[in-house]
Nucleic acid binder design. Structure first.
Lengths: 217, 217
DNA sequence: TGTACATCAGTGAACGCGCGTTCACTGATGTAC
DNA sequence: TGTACATCAGTGAACGCGCGTTCACTGATGTAC
């Protein structure tokens, strides 16, 4: 993707799409310097616009970041949803894809991921933000439900708990090892392998019958 | 703890312990406003000293944060080590204590935890920082080794991997749910319970004989 | 189809502010003899 | 024990800078008739 500052041909007095441009500026700048390392004025400069212009679209810097986070959650939910694909062709491989999609998103979109989880904005600040976040989590939760349903009815663990376990482990791996930035720990294996092994062990621990959820079973 | 700005009696021209005071100031301010939300000048003001004074002790703001992170890792290693207590009286309860100590540290010392994991400073920047970090991780790793040693020799998983799994899960829970600050997700159970359940399931999945590592076995 | 007008989305200059950093300085402390 | 001197750890004033924010303004766009 090559979002230039002026890639949409000649512009006049009006930018035409400043709101979008500011969001892109924020993403660029967060990716470059971290969520705390960019300013409102920076974003305006990046978009090629006067420092007063952003105020037409966002109340302040936090509102801009919140909007970035919201979009991030939406993209995240879409990516997870696509990977999960309703559990096709079989639960286990869908589950595997889901984890990889999670790590992939964190690595490919570190700016979104930062805005979503590390920028210190509360999900309760904005209902739309919260909804988008909930929608992303709902994918994990649905997957956990399908998985739990494979198990014998008695002794089934709560799907919510399973979803939270998977989320925490994946988020932990992503934030400790799975990012492009420096400040990340080195690993003796790929984050994807680490995650896959963790999930396999965990699911075995849940008592999921070996081979359950595999195609043909 | 009540670290006042001038709690050590009357001071003269010399502060006497400015380096320590600056570290405390950083902790206070990080806890208040996040790792990005404090400035060198802020720290000086907090310590009751002119804005030029900190330069006698730290090259710049990053050096101060790195020092805070190093001390954090040292305190962290000590806390984990104490909780682990060489696996006494039995491995499973020591393991349980270890996880709780981890979460407890993240909650009780959010400023340290932020500086260690979220301030964006690379562990490679400073050898002492790296060593302190390694020492903390070594506790987890030792615990994982002892645990793995309980298993039959063939099919033993690598202790390193087990340590990384536990670390990632615990870090994930701590950073998603286990902190005092806002911007954290709500949970239908205590982070400690969530972690304990995750570890139990995981260990079962590793094929650890039920009851192994319990006292009397 | 033209035209008058309202609204929208930018400008650019200005402001007060706090930050990081440097500098010559000075009071306090430690040490050699 | 006293004194001269070196070193240490602060001061305080100053600088240039970029930020956030406001303001009256103006060019561009949309719409009623």
């Amino acid at each position: 993707m090559t979002w230039g500052k002026r890639d949409s041909g000649p512009r006049g007095y009006h930018h035409g799409n400043l709101k979008e441009a500011l969001v892109r500026a924020a993403l660029e700048l967060i990716a470059e310097k971290g969520p705390a390392g960019f300013t409102f004025a920076d974003a305006a400069r990046w978009a090629g616009v006067s420092p007063a212009a952003p105020y037409r679209h966002f109340r302040d810097r936090d509102a801009l970041i919140a909007d970035v986070a919201r979009r991030g959650f939406e993209a995240f939910a879409a990516a997870l949803s696509k990977a999960w694909d309703d559990g096709r062709p079989d639960l286990m491989s869908a589950f595997d894809r889901l984890g990889k999609a999670y790590l992939d998103f964190a690595r490919r979109e570190p700016a979104y991921y930062s805005a979503m989880f590390e920028a210190g904005i509360s999900p309760d600040a904005d209902p739309q933000l919260r909804e988008a976040g909930d929608r992303a989590f709902a994918v994990l939760r649905t997957a956990a439900e399908k998985l739990v349903a494979l198990m014998p009815a008695q002794g089934r663990p709560p799907a919510m708990m399973v979803a939270l376990h998977i989320w925490a482990t994946t988020h932990g791996i992503a934030s400790l090892f799975g990012r492009g930035d420096a400040a990340r720990r080195a690993l003796p294996m790929a984050p994807e392998e680490l995650l896959e092994a963790a999930v396999l062990i965990y699911l075995r621990g849940l008592g999921l019958p070996e081979g359950a959820g595999r195609q043909g079973i």
